[in-house]
């Protein structure tokens, strides 16, 4: 598995898309910092960008990487290698590349601007963790989709729909439900709704660290009370772990059963 992971990683690093992705983040981070000259503002803008982009890029990267390396996969399957290790290695190599791209593209410039010694170091670390987590989760989902559908066009369009669902439609449905049931106490429902969507979860965590004034009103107080406390952190971590473990389990199952 180590070798597969290594080769998968090398292959990704050699492809131009990884460089374009890293370069894009580098450009955006530098541009934002040079325009505003304020680390806080740069972080706020970056968080808006990463929250929408990392899942999208993760899911598109994942699907297209699987399709492009499908033949290589089939070749390797003729060798005496565990199927589970093969799929895990392929996926791991890609996820690591995505995370490295983010760390280099956003992390390096911000560190060179001195974010580690500024007051917003916590927000920076949170942003990095969330960007990487979102990449990991969504590229894993992408792998599952691509394995399920052999047709490339179908796989890609479903991937885009999944991103659209989690990034936009989910919030729309949540709002609709909130509107429909506004006569009832909705605190627990809203917290539940937020926790089940990884993008929302990342956004809420970042918003709460960003400026507390954004989270206002009674629900804001309830949210920050819940999410700021120990039990909230535990629930968040469990939610994120489930979001990686369940798709990983599915990956294993599908990898073993997959018929080419």
């Amino acid at each position: 598995m180590k070798y597969i992971l290594k080769y998968s990683f090398y292959e990704m690093v050699r492809s131009k898309w990884a460089y374009i992705y890293t370069g894009f983040y580098l450009c955006v981070t530098f541009a934002l910092y040079l325009l505003s000259n304020d680390l806080d503002k740069t972080l706020i803008s970056l968080s808006n960008i990463t929250l929408a982009l990392t899942p999208l890029i993760g899911i598109l990267f994942g699907t297209s990487y699987y399709y492009s390396s499908k033949e290589f996969l089939q070749l390797l399957l003729s060798q005496p290698i565990s199927r589970w290790h093969l799929f895990l290695g392929m996926y791991g190599g890609m996820a690591i590349t995505l995370c490295v791209s983010i760390l280099i593209g956003i992390g390096l410039p911000l560190i060179s601007f001195g974010i580690l010694s500024s007051a917003s170091v916590n927000l920076f670390l949170l942003l990095m963790t969330m960007a990487c987590t979102l990449s990991v989760i969504f590229s894993l989902i992408a792998f599952l989709i691509a394995m399920q559908f052999d047709d490339k066009v179908k796989g890609l369009s479903i991937s885009i729909f999944i991103w659209l669902f989690f990034a936009i439609l989910y919030d729309g449905f949540t709002l609709l439900l909130l509107f429909l049931f506004k006569d009832y106490p909705l605190d627990k429902f809203t917290i539940g709704a937020v926790i089940t969507n990884p993008i929302d979860l990342a956004r809420i965590l970042i918003t709460m660290n960003l400026d507390v004034s954004a989270m206002m009103g009674y629900t804001g107080a309830v949210m920050s009370k819940f999410l700021g406390k120990g039990i909230g952190m535990v629930v968040i971590t469990i939610s994120l772990i489930l979001w990686t473990l369940i798709p990983l389990g599915l990956l294993k199952q599908m990898g073993i059963k997959k018929d080419f």
Partner: peptide, 20 residues
């Protein structure tokens, strides 16, 4: 306006949906 009707929708602040 939405926030005034449904205060719980504060959790959607800064989301892509709200921007749209």
């Amino acid at each position: 306006y939405i926030l005034n009707q449904v205060p719980e929708s504060v959790v959607l602040m800064r989301s892509l949906f709200v921007e749209i």
